[in-house]
Simulated scan of single mutants.
Amino acid sequence: MTEDNVQTFMIGDVEVARVVEWERPYVPVLTLVPDLPPEAWPDDHGTPAVVALQTWVLRSAGRTVLVDTGVGNGRERPGNPLFHMSQGDLPGRLARAGVRPEEVDVVVNTHLHGDHVGWNTHDVDGSWQPLFPNARYLLPAADDFHFGPENHYGGGVRPDDRLTYEDSVAPVHRAGLATLWDGTHRIDEHLALESAPGHTPGSSVLRVASGGERAVLVGDLLHSPVQIAHPECSSCFCLDPRQAARSRRRVLERAADEGELVIPAHFGGTGVAEVRRVGDTLTLGK
């Protein structure tokens, strides 16, 4: 079913809805994935890659689970003009998908970059408050430390990290809604989180298994389909490119071997991918 930027499909008994906030050309692929061999992208190297900003809604075991929450509205992000003081309508799009904030049981932030946590909160009379008041927010502990005040907000390298933490993460802690996890974390009989560090220290993937069907929501482990054939190539946003490459290869090889549908955070089009092995090479399935 497709309605107003919402696409819904089933993985066994788990309903998955893709709620797109926006989808547009971003930057050229060789800017996004700078270590990619030029011959791996035979099209015009200057053509911007199409990326999507989206939230995934999973209805599993009687609960509603959101995976990543986009940029949010009215956020100071001077390091990223595309996100600075953005005005989107994710709550409206969620409502049209049948999701009201008070009905959300779990919010998963695959990592704590600003385009994955923005709608964790909203402005209430000049104060940032959790948008999903009855949810447990599952935050990777390694990211919470790295981007939090004890580590001087990501080591003070990017001002946006401090702004993001203070408006989109700290209010969740103050409200007593945050759950920090590390390694693995089981949400229910169908859903389990697993660390996949490199893009950030706490980057994670969410595995879905139900009725003999499988999927893995990989967050920012992938930014472009060309990384499936070249998992050694990390994006320009990865804090530890080598570790990200190791995580990417491990997750993609398992997806190919176990028939997991791969669901990245920012793919345009259908938003999903199949991964297959051809000899020792991974390839995008058809």
Rank of each mutant, 00 (worst) to 15 (best):
D220R: 05
E194K: 09
D43C: 03
Q227H: 09
H45T: 12
L30E: 12
Q227F: 15
A40C: 02
A49I: 03
G176H: 02
D115A: 06
D280T: 11
V278A: 11
W181H: 04
E260G: 08
L82W: 03
D105G: 00
D44R: 11
S247Y: 10
V107F: 09
A196Q: 04
V19W: 11
V57G: 03
D115V: 02
G285K: 06
R186I: 14
F267S: 02
F147L: 15
L193K: 01
V172F: 07
V27K: 09
L239S: 14
E253R: 08
P130I: 08
T2F: 05
Q54F: 00
L180E: 15
D161T: 14
R186H: 06
T31W: 15
V29N: 07
L131H: 06
F267K: 04
P37R: 06
A61L: 02
W181M: 01
G46V: 00
A209D: 12
A244I: 05
R136I: 13
D115H: 08
G62S: 13
L138P: 04
S235V: 06
P101E: 08
R250V: 03
T64I: 11
D89Q: 10
R59V: 02
P28L: 13
G271E: 03
F237T: 11
C238Y: 04
Q129L: 11
F147G: 03
E253A: 06
G269D: 14
A49C: 03
P42G: 04
E39V: 14
E213T: 04
Q87H: 07
